[in-house]
């Protein structure tokens, strides 16, 4: 586990499958080896009368864990549990009900290139598999602090994506967080990276895709 940067890839009049194929070819030409498939999915459970949502997410990189994020509109509280949490959510079904229409997932091939791990995910939503876009995940495994290796990952992304590579640090890392000392700005950029950070980046992008397709829920 290392620092992971998630970035959307603009399609430019190509179909999703074409773009994935082109990127795969590019990676293989750079000397990468394909190492299986991956899947990240996100589900939303809504409270029946309060404005509380629980995002329940799975990541195939951590197959024995369930990541859940409680969102009450102002604050997000993450929780990492064992797989049995899924069954617990079924038990509380009358109060928290799942919205099948906005279940979203990102899946695709997974490549290893030196110490880098690159995942090309095509994002699909709801049960009829509406294609939404492409999310590229780059994981630099030896490094644990985003601030140390952001420039290095940026250079790697430029080598892979060219013009489409991101130039700014993803907002997830630069957003100021509440801290004990009000004078000190605190954000995740200098923190040690945790698996939940990957999942929260996915959640941010999934929410963007959900907003594109429908009016904001509730």
């Amino acid at each position: 586990m290392g620092v992971t940067i998630l970035t959307p890839y603009p399609l430019q009049n190509k179909s999703g499958a074409e773009a994935i194929e082109e990127l795969s070819k590019r990676l293989l030409a750079l000397g990468a080896t394909q190492a299986g498939q991956f899947l990240v999915d996100g589900d939303i459970f809504e409270h029946s009368f309060k404005k509380i949502k629980i995002h329940v997410m799975h990541n195939s990189e951590y197959p024995a864990s369930v990541f859940s994020i409680l969102d009450n509109g102002q604050k997000q509280i993450p929780l990492i549990t064992d797989l049995i949490f899924d069954l617990l959510m079924l038990k509380v079904n009358p109060i928290y009900s799942s919205k099948k229409m906005i279940k979203i997932e990102s899946k695709g091939p997974r490549f290893e290139l030196g110490d880098f791990l690159v995942k090309l995910g095509s994002v699909t939503m709801s049960q009829n598999q509406n294609f939404k876009g492409i999310l590229i995940e780059v994981d630099y495994r030896p490094c644990l602090v985003p601030a140390f290796c952001w420039d290095l990952i940026k250079e790697f992304l430029q080598g892979l994506l060219g013009q489409q590579a991101p130039t700014a640090i993803p907002g997830y890392f630069t957003n100021t967080l509440p801290s004990n000392n009000p004078n000190q700005h605190y954000h995740r950029f200098n923190d040690t990276y945790q698996p939940i950070d990957t999942v929260q980046q996915y959640l941010e992008h999934f929410n963007n895709y959900r907003k594109q397709s429908q009016a904001p829920t509730i």
Binding site: G114, D115, L152, E155
Partner: peptide, 18 residues
């Protein structure tokens, strides 16, 4: 190691290594 580019080629990565 991860935050300083090479003094000669001014780049971070060469053969996918810093």
């Amino acid at each position: 190691i991860f935050s300083e580019p090479c003094k000669r080629c001014q780049r971070f990565l060469l053969n996918n290594l810093p």
